[in-house]
Simulated assay, not measured.
Amino acid sequence: MDQLDQLDQLLATATPLLARVDEALSGVGAPGGHDVWRELRRVRLLPGDAARAVAALHPAPMLDAVPELRADARAYADLADALPPAGGWSGEAAEAYEKARRGAAEHLNGGPDSLGHRMEATADLADALTSWMLRARADLAATLAEVMLSTEAITLLADDHPPADRAAAAAAIGARLLQAIADSYDDAEDLLAGATDLQSPLSV
């Protein structure tokens, strides 16, 4: 079973548990000072909604775009190389043409602001984000599998425990799920912040 199927199937099975976690946290709350409060501030979603947001990450379309982006980068490089030099020309017209040719070649496939470099940087970022999506889904699937087998899950799914015990159980499960999700999204922010080649406006 691949990670996509694993998370989707686990999430479907865990729907009643997640519903009880969200219901307890939004209705009863959690013990004061519990770690779940910090994780709720980081994610700003209840655990069930946060888990479904991760499950909505589908890396396949982004992965499919990478070869096309790299092909476009190569096409810009080939086009830059194909621009003919002035050859036997001389004089002001030849100098003006050569200046324009070099400028066009630089714009197509030169420094960090060139179209070719931007395409390669975009492909690199798409590759990195694809890997991140797969890791985020895998990490959530592993955490979800653990909490589904926990004593806290048994407490929440049973109807014979006092509200305080159920609130504590919901907080414990919620904290673990939200921490895994928040850590994954912190990794995504780092990836985007590191894509410095794509942060400046493209010159035209």
Rank of each mutant, 00 (worst) to 15 (best):
G48A: 14
D49G: 12
A50R: 03
A51C: 15
A51D: 04
R52E: 12
R52K: 13
R52N: 05
R52G: 09
R52W: 08
R52I: 00
R52F: 09
A53G: 09
A53V: 09
V54G: 04
A55S: 15
A55Y: 03
A55G: 11
A55F: 04
A56G: 13
A56W: 07
A56N: 07
L57T: 06
L57S: 08
L57N: 07
L57I: 14
H58E: 11
H58N: 13
H58F: 11
P59A: 12
P59H: 07
A60T: 13
A60S: 06
P61C: 06
L63K: 07
L63S: 14
D64C: 03
D64N: 09
D64I: 08
A65H: 06
A65C: 00
V66E: 09
P67F: 04
P67E: 04
E68N: 08
E68T: 12
L69P: 01
R70Y: 01
R70N: 11
R70C: 00
R70F: 00
A71E: 11
A71N: 02
D72S: 09
D72C: 05
D72L: 13
D72Q: 11
A73H: 02
R74P: 00
R74D: 05
A75K: 06
A75L: 10
Y76L: 04
Y76E: 01
Y76F: 14
Y76C: 08
Y76D: 01
A77C: 02
L79V: 05
L79P: 03
L79S: 12
A80H: 01
D81H: 11
A82W: 12
P85R: 08
A86Y: 03
A86G: 15
A86R: 13
G87F: 08
G87T: 04
G87Y: 06
G88N: 13
W89D: 10
W89A: 15
W89F: 13
S90K: 13
S90H: 11
G91A: 14
G91P: 02
E92C: 00
A93Q: 14
A93F: 10
A94T: 05
A94H: 07
A94W: 06
A94Y: 10
E95M: 15
A96K: 14
Y97R: 05
E98R: 11
E98Q: 12
E98D: 14
K99H: 15
A100Q: 09
A100T: 12
A100D: 08
A100Y: 06
A100W: 05
A100R: 13
A100H: 11
R101D: 08
R101A: 14
R102H: 14
G103F: 02
H107K: 12
H107R: 13
N109M: 02
N109Y: 01
N109K: 00
G110Y: 03
G110C: 01
G110W: 03
G111E: 09
G111M: 02
G111S: 11
P112V: 06
P112C: 00
D113K: 06
L115H: 03
